[in-house]
Nucleic acid binder design. Structure first.
Lengths: 113, 113
DNA sequence: ACTCATGGTGTAGACAATCTACGTCATATG
DNA sequence: CATATGACGTAGATTGTCTACACCATGAGT
């Protein structure tokens, strides 16, 4: 229930970054990407399918990742995504944007001296 | 122009936190709060009025801050906000939420070892 | 052969936070 | 008395996430 329960939310706008970063290790399908992020973040980041697939489609539409149907480890059909050249560039951009913003927030939270 | 200009955006959901944290120093009005955040973040965080005032109203509605009309330094009428007791508690909550999420994102970006 | 759990992809609609682009009012200042 | 400025405010668009579904194909068990 809880008709409007807002609080599993991850940090807006970071999902694209997380996905791009994950694909640096090589092509992967949606499920695996979400699983990887969840594992590496030690369960702090849990990506819902309703966020995951729209994100993948939007990244693909922007040309930052490219897709291909293949067969997964478990023998199921799956859509494998890989980083494109521009995606790699975008990753750098977003990574530095994150860096800058998170430093700025931290600076407000714990002002020097 | 730029009919849909997308990239001045600060990190969703962090604004409330920034405002609450700023009010720890004592009551302040909207303009001053935004100015403080911008200064302390060394211009990395610039809060637009269309984000600022809705945020203040929503924090007030939730009982985390309380307001009072006064006269500002410059002699203009201004609405001074102060942290309430529950606001102080909320600040702790949001601060630790931020901490946790930002660590998690960083962990994904630069995996250990 | 049949069933079913599992793995994987997907969409619709609600919701919330931010932005842009305005508008308004009161006081200080020249 | 006019004007700049300090300060508050709202409307509407945009966007990203979530919840809650639905769907399909394959593997595994019987």
């Amino acid at each position: 229930m809880t008709p409007a329960s807002p609080r599993n939310q991850l940090l807006y706008g970071t999902l694209d970054l997380l996905i791009l970063r994950t694909l640096v290790y090589g092509p992967a399908h949606g499920h695996a990407i979400a699983g990887h992020i969840q594992r590496v973040s030690e369960d702090a980041l849990r990506i819902e399918t309703g966020s995951l697939y729209p994100a993948l489609h939007r990244l693909e539409a922007r040309g930052w990742i490219a897709a291909e149907w293949k067969t997964s480890d478990k023998g199921k059909r799956a859509r494998y995504y890989r980083l494109t050249r521009t995606g790699r560039r975008q990753l750098v951009v977003e990574q530095s944007r994150w860096q800058q913003l998170s430093v700025a927030v931290t600076r407000v939270l714990q002002p020097a001296e």
